[in-house]
Every structure is written in structure tokens, then in C-alpha cells.
Design a protein around this nucleic acid. Structure first.
Lengths: 111, 111
DNA sequence: GCCGTTAATCGTATGATTACGATATAGGAT
DNA sequence: ATCCTATATCGTAATCATACGATTAACGGC
């Protein structure tokens, strides 16, 4: 009955979870790395780099695009992708804040 | 045909993805926060704190335990949980390294 | 116009995830 | 031994995720 009870969680936690979800598959990690380092970020290059079918890569790109951390523009018959650093940084900061909070709350007492 | 092609990805990326997956649900984010801040980390307290059934919470705890970032010990009729900071830190550092690499590779050229 | 290339989307199959209630188990108390 | 409490596990159902091939759509070149 996988009705997500997502509504009952604080907004910040949802953001962290969304970001984490985007990074929860090695293909998407790889995609982001390529996008970060390459000047040309054409879909076909990503497909060539990854051990996955074109349609699967496209699906992963869609997921990242839906979160907003990448953008895609149509360039003739191909698609050029890039990281939206503004959005990426926002999520990264949110994640960093959560991470820091964890360290601050840290207690080595039980177990 | 959801055969994961996981083998074809670098080990570091797999680690980052595993950590991200653990954090990809707000319930697990919440659990970790509670465990970090509470001195008492009894399962029942977590159930009381979360808008989820006892069995569901137990399931989330199991997922975190399988990754190794939390540990559980049996304490009489109840279970006491805590974060294994050694493991948690290791994953966090791995994530941080990935994060830094992203920033270093960053190029604002296309799109 | 017609063809080739590129990439998104569709259809589909399979496995994983998430959720719940019910049951089992184990420990403490009486 | 019996009962109560706490929690893990089982059974189950629904949804999501991941993968692929096939198809569609959009553009450029001829």
C-alpha cells in the first residue's frame, strides 16, 4: 500500500531526500560528472560513455531535469545538456546544512 | 528488464549512490536526525515520532543497518539503535569528495 | 520533397521500494 | 508457567524504478 506519507515530513528533509534520490543511482552520478567536466555535453556522448541504452540514459536525464539540477536545450537534431549550477548549489547547500546539523547533534553515547 | 548494470560503474560512484539511496527517503532522514540528537534511541521512540507504522519504521531501520550507518543492540525487550559514526563519517567523506570534485570540474560554458 | 541522424517517448517486463496489518519471538514481570 | 510488552519478520498489495527495444518527432542535408 505504498501510499507515501511524504506530507508528514518537514520541507527541508524532503529537499534533502529529493537530492539524495537524484544521486541514488550510479548512472546519474556518472552523468553529472561528465556534464561537470565536459564542455560539450551532447546526449550522444553520454550514451557512448555509459553502459546503458540510449533510452535508459534519456530516462535518467529526464529525472535529473525534473529535479532541476540539469537543463537541456535542443541544438539542431541533438540535445545539449548542462548542469544548472544555481539549482545544484542550492541542493548541495541544503544537503550540507543537514550534514552539519548531524555532526552538531552528534552524541556518542548509546550502543 | 531492470537488471542493474551496477558492475560497470566505478566503486566510488557506487558508494556515493548507496549513501544517497539511504538518504533518499524522508523517514530515514528523520530517523538519523533523531538518532543523532537523542541519548536514548529506542525503536519505540522512533515509531512515536514518525507518522508511520511500527513495521514500516522497522523496515527503514533495517535498510540503514544493512548499509552499516546505524547499529542496533537488543536491550531487554526493546531495541536500542545508534549511528555508527565511523561508518557514517566514511560515507560522508566519500560524498564530500564527490561533491568537491564536482565543484572543481565545474565549467559554466554550455547551455 | 526524401533520407539519415539524434534523441524523446511509448510500451513493456521485472525487480525494488514502501506501506500496512498480522504473526512470531524474545525478554521481563508476576 | 503465564502474561505483557516491544520489536522483528512475514504476507501482501500498490507504486516506483530501471532497463530495453520500437516508435515517433524534429532537424539537416541531399
Amino acid at each position: 500500500m505504498a501510499l507515501p506519507r511524504i506530507i508528514d515530513f518537514p520541507d527541508k528533509d524532503l529537499k534533502v531526500a529529493d537530492f539524495a534520490k537524484a544521486l541514488s543511482h550510479p548512472a546519474r552520478i556518472a552523468i553529472l560528472k561528465v556534464l561537470a567536466e565536459k564542455q560539450e555535453c551532447i546526449c550522444g556522448d553520454l550514451v557512448a560513455d555509459l553502459p546503458l541504452a540510449q533510452s535508459t540514459v534519456s530516462q535518467h536525464l529526464k529525472a535529473l531535469k525534473e529535479l532541476g539540477i540539469i537543463r537541456g536545450i535542443i541544438d539542431g537534431p541533438r540535445s545539449r545538456y548542462c548542469i544548472d549550477w544555481k539549482v545544484f548549489d542550492r541542493y548541495q547547500r541544503e544537503f550540507g546544512a543537514w550534514s552539519e546539523k548531524m555532526v552538531k547533534l552528534r552524541q556518542d553515547n548509546c550502543c
